[in-house]
């Protein structure tokens, strides 16, 4: 395998609703910044891959317009995944591994505010037997939380503590959306939204975009003073049938974590794509993180959940923190599908 490093990361400040700019206008400054910071000329970037979904944008072929923001003239080598940007980064990493290119741009975007996200995501389920029941995301996550609570793996207080900690951490992140000091006892006194989930257990609705530039060994060292090395990256899938899974576990995360080599060294912190508070607790276990490992110092998805970018943002935020010298080895994670169905794990080192 070739050594590959993240050389720059950029994102929009995450907001509840981007009502003024369209997707292209939202993306341009992010891509400008990530290319500028990479130290690689736009024309020299070997490959570009984006991640997005038509169901957020409310139109078919919505990723096509994003090409306008990239500068695809003269024509570029480019691809797109109908997945979170973390998988766009994976495809870009594969291209570098092929030896075909030495650098790549991965980006993603989405505006959850345009539609009703929880209902839209119900369209991810089996169209014949499940989707007609319209199981919204929050209800499916609630089923998962209930299993974990009943098995005694965590308590509602543990979940509230996750939410409070994430939103406290987000106070240090100028680009996070939902932040502040919350008292756990007060949170627990709030009524249920969808039992056993309370409002604080759920992510905000966010609009935004994120972009990463990666480069192979020598180029990365040449253009960056602080390249952040991708030491392992792997992704795995679980069954789609909620009834056939033990929802309190995440075997695909566990397997991806093993393949990515999480346990091959100490972990200083983790950025986990856990949109619901209890999912952080499930992921922690699946990744075998020690109790003292700092999770989501950026605030994580409970502070800003730009769907399609939230996974890529975890990798980006982790790389930023390492580049800033606040940790040497970290794990970043992205998820997709109902109740953590698909998971990507990435091990980063300074």
């Amino acid at each position: 395998m070739r050594d590959v490093a993240i050389v720059s990361y950029s994102q929009t400040p995450y907001v509840r609703s981007e009502r003024v700019r369209n997707e292209v206008e939202m993306l341009m400054p992010v891509i400008d910044a990530v290319v500028e910071q990479s130290g690689i000329a736009r024309r020299e970037i070997g490959f570009t891959c984006s991640g997005s979904t038509d169901y957020l944008a409310g139109q078919s072929f919505s990723f096509v317009m994003a090409v306008d923001a990239v500068g695809a003239w003269p024509p570029i080598k480019e691809s797109h995944v109908e997945m979170d940007g973390a998988w766009a980064l994976y495809e870009a990493w594969v291209k570098i591994q092929c030896g075909e290119v030495d650098s790549a741009l991965a980006f993603s975007f989405g505006r959850s505010s345009m539609g009703e996200t929880a209902e839209t995501l119900a369209l991810q389920t089996d169209p014949y037997t499940v989707a007609p029941l319209c199981p919204d995301t929050i209800s499916m996550a609630a089923l998962q939380a209930r299993v974990g609570l009943d098995k005694g793996l965590f308590s509602e207080r543990d979940m509230a503590e996750v939410a409070a900690r994430c939103r406290r951490a987000a106070k240090d992140n100028p680009e996070a959306q939902l932040k502040g000091d919350f008292d756990v006892d007060k949170l627990l006194a709030e009524p249920y939204l969808v039992s056993p989930l309370r409002k604080h257990d759920c992510p905000p609705i966010s609009d935004g975009a994120a972009a990463i530039v990666i480069a192979a060994g020598d180029l990365a060292k040449q253009v960056s003073k602080k390249p952040v090395w991708i030491r392992g990256i792997d992704h795995r899938l679980d069954s789609h049938q909620l009834g056939s899974r033990d929802l309190s576990l995440s075997p695909s995360t566990e397997l991806a974590g093993k393949k990515a080599g999480v346990a091959q060294g100490p972990i200083d912190f983790a950025e986990l794509h856990a949109p619901f508070s209890h999912q952080e607790l499930i992921l922690r276990r699946a990744l075998g993180l020690a109790d003292d490992v700092l999770v989501n110092p950026s605030g994580g998805p409970l502070a800003a959940n730009p769907i399609m970018s939230a996974g890529l943002a975890r990798i980006g935020e982790a790389s930023r923190r390492i580049a800033a010298g606040k940790g040497q080895r970290a794990v970043a994670h992205a998820t997709s599908g109902p109740c953590l169905q698909q998971n990507l794990v990435c091990v980063l080192e300074g």
């Binding site: 292209v24 409310g58 345009m114 539609g115 009703e116 209902e119 369209l123 169209p127 989707a131 007609p132």
Partner: peptide, 18 residues
């Protein structure tokens, strides 16, 4: 065949220049 109507409402933003 089964028919399962799908209804999703969107609010579009034309953007600054449009």
């Amino acid at each position: 065949r089964i028919i399962t109507p799908v209804k999703v409402d969107y609010e579009y933003t034309p953007g600054v220049t449009s």
